[in-house]
Design a protein around this nucleic acid. Sequence first.
DNA 1: AGCATAAGTTGACAATGACAACATCACGTT
DNA 2: AACGTGATGTTGTCATTGTCAACTTATGCT
Lengths: 159, 159
Amino acid sequence: MLREVARRAGVSHNAPYRHFPSRDALLAALAAEGFAEFGARMQSQAGAVMGEAYVSFALERPQRFRLMFGGTVKLGSDPALARAASGAYEGLVAAFRARGDVADPETAAAAAWSLVHGLSHLLLAGHFPQATAGGAQRAEFIRKVTGAVRFAAAPQRTA
Amino acid sequence: MLREVARRAGVSHNAPYRHFPSRDALLAALAAEGFAEFGARMQSQAGAVMGEAYVSFALERPQRFRLMFGGTVKLGSDPALARAASGAYEGLVAAFRARGDVADPETAAAAAWSLVHGLSHLLLAGHFPQATAGGAQRAEFIRKVTGAVRFAAAPQRTA
DNA sequence: AGCATAAGTTGACAATGACAACATCACGTT
DNA sequence: AACGTGATGTTGTCATTGTCAACTTATGCT
């Protein structure tokens, strides 16, 4: 795989080693790049649509997504990686906190994150045949699923 | 990896080829075994706790879980695999349908599945440092997250 | 006894990730 | 202009891996 990368770059094997100390380092760099793009995309979205943006990213760049979240690259290896990954999550928590109508913003954020993350994985793995590859059906499905949940409401401030 | 399996089994490389036509076939068989155990566990659980059981499975058998859902083994390869995988989902849909208080049982099931699936992945990947490895904190976290969502209610039957 | 089938073994091959040593080229400093 | 230094790339090699092929047992059936 490393060698094939080199081949496709029209360069001889071992050239990659001048840029990355190992295959895993290359992959980690790709993952970091992915997290950067991903974070940018997320931040450019507001509230409810963020979920759809999340899934869109996964579907448009399946390999990247799997690389980033597939467990091949361990998050702990590069602290920059971990920071990039947790950044988007913090943003989500902040968004929920700002809404103010949710009981536990942290938990709600974790749930929302889990939902879109799981949906992405399951769609990629083909576990939802209802949402066939290409079309508007899929987008509609995603919208329906992400819109199907409500978060436990905060206790009413004043009566 | 195949060779190491053979080594650990105290048998010479290529012995595995008497039982599986290829490395991928071995992995597919392991995934199928995983889905079987997984399905059994799910069916032995009722409604709300299913989610926790799902996550527990992932945390107890991370390798299996990743193998089953990690994309390495393509679901389409073995129809039995696909059937095993979709079985649990159908059960979930049925459970939601039986509840009767949800607008769209199919969508709710997809959302619930996505939630626990994503939560499993994120926990395994270490994206939720709040839930540290061992303890009750983690179980509590899982309970909170899975309990944080409500599903869009069905329109009231009669006024 | 004879033999077919399953299970395992050794030997080989191409491909891969990694290492080492050598080559080239662009520079900044003197 | 000459030199050295660092980055980039190359060839050669090594152990390891997945896979194929051919040979060897061993087990059980007729």
